[in-house]
Design a protein around this nucleic acid. Structure first.
Length: 601
RNA sequence: UGGCCGAUGGUGUAAUGGUAGCACAGGCGACUUUGACUCGCCUAGUCAUGGUUCAAAUCCAUGUCGGCCAGCCA
């Protein structure tokens, strides 16, 4: 799909924020020679606009400070992860940063895993990104570090800082205590190093069933921070892994794998969301306990994105997909990156949005209008203007002969002459928008009315002489007179009328399916006060119409963005369109002052 | 009622002890062959109470409100 950056000269940049300030300070103090971030999604679902914020933050920092950002699959749980998600994540990330931060994307040579090396007399593991545009590359995988991670765990045992625990999951929970009551030591806490080593090796060898034993960090069961109460760092799972197959039945947990993955990749700034704040002492504890050879990464936390009229939980998004409340992860109503992309949202608009909302530790709700504004701003610059009628009403110009065809020239963009012009046929029978005529108009209605005049954009002014209705009283046709002296370049072209409307010549029009999307939810906070988000789904989030399009829209270039004048921004659906039979999707409506005015009763 | 983290117009953010600014939204106008775009103007804010200071959104204390943490999920 072609989606070249619309305006590469105006690649969005972010204002400074507390994380960028810290990065800049670290660089100024010489703590790192180059900064290195990472984006570490778990491949258990599709990426959404919340991830877009994180992607733009991590890649944006790499871009701004001349560093790199690794894409890493955080895949330590074989029972939840899947190759389908790995592939969608790669596509989404590359699309989002395409033309903006591609040069910062850290991939590794395909198949490469960290090798043991000796640094200052101790065993160390390091895996650097592929350099110089190598062709055969892939994302980093936490699962590529299972061997080093295992060895680090052995080392932790040797240091007396970890032990094999035989407590059942239920007992582990009981011994943990509660936030306001300390835990108690596991009866297995003081096993000898030798016994721990032997047991851990047998865990790896598959001698025990799932859940029979765990490896735990030996920290402090009385800590007020629950994550320091001897957290489990390895569990037994006899399950195939999407990336390592059946090699392992022993898998590390997030807290153990993440900090060490960061270390192995030489990450300097490990940026995550607020809920990991309480894990940071554990992140630091593991790294420090191991006495590692190279500089340690540091974790920083920021508030995840919440958007009004939107839900962001992967689990709930999956429910919408599974229950067929949407057509899939890439349904254009979904807040997923693939949904937004399919809807026609340009990557640049998403970046402008993600970088513009700022980065703080305050958990708020961003108004979806901010996204919509970024979208319209981008699309207004990029989209070619076209005429299309969504809900047609026939107009007969009684002073034109049947079969007579005039031609008018229309600009493709109002402020960009380089976009060129095109010819629009004009004939006795036209389609106009039903909304653009009212039999009994309210005050301040500028469009067509009985006996009234309106300009047809790029053409001329018409007067409505007669309103034809069917037996039910519905308006089915307007009989009008065209004043050809008012055409562009004509003697009376400067004549002013209040309204200008769009139109399409009926015999030349192309009929096509157009899908009109609206917000998925009717409430700004779908889950406010514990409400079920499915109870506030917008029944009108999708409306399908057969529209009348100007002929030039019959074979749209794939990836092209159009403004259907006065209606909104549209593009051909890359999924449903067939050659010569496009299906257009409405990306976003125009800003609409009239609906607001009309609503003022 | 354990710990950690937050709180600035309606919303999101800036001000790093020295004039509370920006964006979105909203309102009014100008322009308009898109009721779009653009432009001008306007509305509206430092959670509370004390303290430190010549000076506090900023530092301190207490309180209030909100978020997160008791997966062998990430």
């Amino acid at each position: 799909m072609s989606d070249a950056p619309a305006n590469p000269g105006t690649a969005p940049t972010a204002p400074s924020d507390f994380i960028r300030d810290l990065v800049a300070a670290d660089l100024a103090a010489g703590r790192y020679s180059q900064i290195h971030t990472r984006f570490p999604p778990e491949p258990n679902g599709y990426l959404h606009i919340g991830h877009a914020k994180s992607i733009c933050l991590n890649f944006g920092i790499a871009r701004q400070f001349g560093g790199l950002c690794n894409l890493r699959m955080d895949d330590t749980n074989p029972t939840k992860e899947d190759l389908e998600y790995v592939e969608s994540i790669m596509a989404d990330v590359q699309w989002l940063i395409g033309g903006w931060a591609d040069h910062c994307l850290g991939f590794k040579p395909k198949g490469k895993t960290p090798e043991a090396q000796s640094v200052n007399g101790q065993t160390d593991y390091h895996l650097a990104p592929a350099t110089g545009g190598s062709a055969d590359v892939e994302p980093f995988y936490a699962s590529d570090y299972f061997v080093p991670l295992y060895n680090f765990a052995v080392q932790l045992i040797t240091l007396g800082q970890a032990y094999v625990c035989d407590l059942s999951p239920e007992d582990t929970e009981k011994y943990r205590g509660t936030p306001d009551r300390p835990g108690t030591n596991s009866p297995f806490r003081d096993r000898s190093v030798a016994e721990n080593l032997e047991l851990f090796a047998r865990m790896k060898a598959g001698d025990f069933r799932d859940g029979a034993r765990t490896l735990r960090a030996k920290i402090d069961m009385t800590s007020p921070n629950i994550w320091l109460r001897d957290p489990v760092i390895y569990r037994i799972r006899h399950a195939a892994h999407h990336h390592t197959g059946n090699t392992w039945c022993l898998y590390p947990l997030y807290d153990f794998a993440h900090c060490l993955s960061d270390y192995i990749e030489g990450i300097t700034h490990s940026i995550c969301t607020l809920e990991f704040e309480v894990h940071r002492p554990l992140y630091d504890w593991i790294l420090q306990s191991l006495g590692l050879a190279r500089p340690l990464p540091h974790q920083f936390e920021f508030a995840r994105l919440n958007l009004s009229y939107t839900i962001m939980s992967k689990r709930k998004l999956l429910a919408l997909v599974n229950e067929h409340l949407v057509t899939g992860w890439d349904d254009p109503r979904m807040p997923t990156i693939s949904g937004l992309r399919r809807r026609g949202v340009p990557a640049n608009a998403l970046r402008t949005f993600a970088l513009g909302i700022g980065v703080t530790k305050f958990n708020g709700v961003t108004d979806v209008a901010v996204l919509e504004h970024a979208l319209r701003e981008e699309l207004n610059q990029v989209a070619l203007r076209r005429l299309a009628v969504l809900r047609p009403l026939k107009v007969v110009l009684t002073n034109l002969a049947p079969g007579e065809v005039l031609e008018f020239e229309a600009g493709n963009h109002p402020t960009d002459p380089d976009a060129g012009t095109r010819k629009l046929p004009f004939s006795r029978e036209l389609w106009i928008e039903q909304d653009d005529f009212m039999d009994v108009p309210p005050p301040k209605y500028f469009r067509l009315r009985p006996g009234g005049e309106v300009r047809l954009k790029y053409a001329c002014i018409i007067r409505c002489d007669e309103v034809v209705k069917d037996a039910a009283g519905q308006v089915i046709e307007l009989r009008c007179t065209a004043d050809l002296d008012t055409r562009s370049g004509g003697p009376n072209s400067a004549k002013k009328v209040k309204g200008t409307i769009h139109w399409v010549s009926a015999p030349h029009a192309v009929a096509a399916e157009v899908r009109l999307y609206d917000r998925l939810f009717t409430e700004a906070e779908p889950e406010k006060d514990g409400r079920d988000f499915k109870s506030v789904l917008n029944p009108h989030s999708l409306e399908v119409v057969t529209a009348k399009l100007e002929a030039s829209l019959a074979q749209p270039e794939s990836g092209a963005r159009f403004q259907f004048e006065r209606l909104g921004y549209f593009w051909p659906d890359p999924v449903a369109s067939q050659p010569g039979q496009p299906v257009f999707l409405r990306t976003i409506t125009m800003k609409d002052a009239w609906t607001k005015e009309a609503g003022k009763v």
